[in-house]
Write a protein that binds this DNA or RNA. Sequence first.
DNA 1: CGTGTTCTTGAAGCCGTTCAATGAAAGTGG
DNA 2: CCACTTTCATTGAACGGCTTCAAGAACACG
Lengths: 249, 249
Amino acid sequence: MPALADHAPLRSRTQQAAATSIALRDCGVCAVRATSICSALPDSEHGRFTTLGRRVSLRPRAVLFSEGAVAEAVYNVTEGVVRLHRLLPDGARRVIGFGMPGDFLGLPTDERHSFTADALEPVTVCRFSRRAFSAFMEDRPTFVRRVLNSTTDTLDLARDHMVLLARPDARTKVAAFLLAMRARSARLRPPSVTVHLPMGRQDIGDFLGLSIATVSRTLTRLARQRVILIIPNGVRILDLRALERIAGA
Amino acid sequence: MPALADHAPLRSRTQQAAATSIALRDCGVCAVRATSICSALPDSEHGRFTTLGRRVSLRPRAVLFSEGAVAEAVYNVTEGVVRLHRLLPDGARRVIGFGMPGDFLGLPTDERHSFTADALEPVTVCRFSRRAFSAFMEDRPTFVRRVLNSTTDTLDLARDHMVLLARPDARTKVAAFLLAMRARSARLRPPSVTVHLPMGRQDIGDFLGLSIATVSRTLTRLARQRVILIIPNGVRILDLRALERIAGA
DNA sequence: CGTGTTCTTGAAGCCGTTCAATGAAAGTGG
DNA sequence: CCACTTTCATTGAACGGCTTCAAGAACACG
C-alpha cells in the first residue's frame, strides 16, 4: 500500500502507530526493516518473500518514481527519508507526506502513481516488482490482511493530517508537525529531543499549507520562546510540554 | 476499510473513482448497493455474504457509531448521507468526510473507531458484524484484495482532500467541494447539474477548514456571478466550465 | 404562530501571504 | 583553497483575505 501520508499527533493514535511499527524485523538479504507486514509470514515464506526484493540506493534528489508514471514496483524504505508530492495544475507543489524507514510506497494505488517520490537525503529502498508482489499475495490471505491493515493505518494517519490542515493557525500546525516527525522517528530510534528534518522549509510549507515565510517565522518564534532550538537539518525540543500544548489546542 | 474521506476533484482520478463504483450491484436481501467489493464474489459466495448483513434504518441526527467506541461492526451505506467527524481536544469539530450510498464505513481501522458517524438525513445502512466480516475474509484472498483496493482508493481520495485543504483561497475549496459532491453522486444517478447537499454550512466549513461565514459568503458570491444557483439543500450548477476553472487553479 | 436554529450579511481586526531584500550556507570551478 | 555562484533561510513591510463578533433574516419545527 502507498504510504504514510504524514500525520498529526493531536491524538494518542500516533503513539499506537509507533507501537505497531516498533515490531520491525530485519528481512535479511535486503536488510528490509519491513513493518509488521513481514511478521505475518512463517519463516519459510519469509525467506521467499525476501528474495523477491532488490536493494536500491539513491542519492539526494534522485527520483524513485514519478506522478503519472506506470507503477511497476513497490518499495520499502530502509534508510533515509523520501519526499512524496504532487504537482498542481497551476504549477504549485503539495507535499503529501514523507516516507521513512519501514514505510511501504506505491503499492496498489492504481495503474499509475498518483504522486512523485524523491530522496531528500541518501536513501536506500528495497524494490519489489509489482507483479511479483501481487503474485506473492495470491493464496496468502494473512499476508494480504497485513497489507490491508497497514493501508488502513496509513489512511488514519492521512485523516489526522487532514484535521491538522484544517487548523487556521500556523503555530499549531508547525508544533504538531514537529511532534509528528519526532513520533515517526521514534519507531527506529528511542525517542529523542532532537528531531531530524531533512526537508527544506519550502517542503514543510507545502506539507502544512503554509508559505515558506510563515514556516520560518513560526520556527523562529518558537525558538525565541525557548520551546525549540534550531539546529542544522532539524530542531531540538527544549520544552516538550509547551510544544504539546501548542499543538493540542 | 473505513470510508471515503471525501475528496477534491482537481485531477481526473475523481472520474476514475466514479467509474469504479458505477459497477454497483444490488446485493439482494439487504438491498446492499455494494461497491465493486461484492462483484469479486462468485454468485454462490455472493448469496452467503449477503445473509451476513442486517438492514438498519436511521433517522436524521442518529449516531451510527462514535469516536472512541469499540468497533463492533462494518457498515455499508445504502441510502442517504452520513457525516464522519472528529471532536478536537479544544471542543472544535472537524468533518473528515461524508459517507454516501455504496461506501463502506468503519472497516478495519483499529479496535476503536477513530471518528463518529451520524446521519444527515434518513439513512439506511447494511450492518455486518465485524467478526462475521473478518471470518468471511478468511480464505477468500480475492475478496480481501477487493477490500484492499477499495481502501487504497479511499486513501487516494483522502490525499486529494489533503491537497485541497492546503489551498489558501476559499473559492477554490468551495468550488472543488461542489464538483466533488457532484462526482460522488454521479456514481448513483447520472451526472446532474443539481448537487444535493444534505449537510449544513457549518459542516462544509468544518470539512474545508473554513468558517461558516466564509462558506456562506463564497457560495453567495458564486451565485451572484451566475456560476451556481442556491436551492434548498443544495445548489444547481449554472456554469460548469467556470466552476471547474475556479476549482482547478 | 411563536421559538429555536440555521443562514446571511456587515464591520473590524488579525494573521498569513506576497513581494522583496539581506544574509547564510553549500556546492562549483578556477 | 579560495572566490564565485547558487540555493536556501531569515526578516521586513504592505496588502489582502479569512476570522471573529454580532445582528438581522429566513426557515423549520412543534
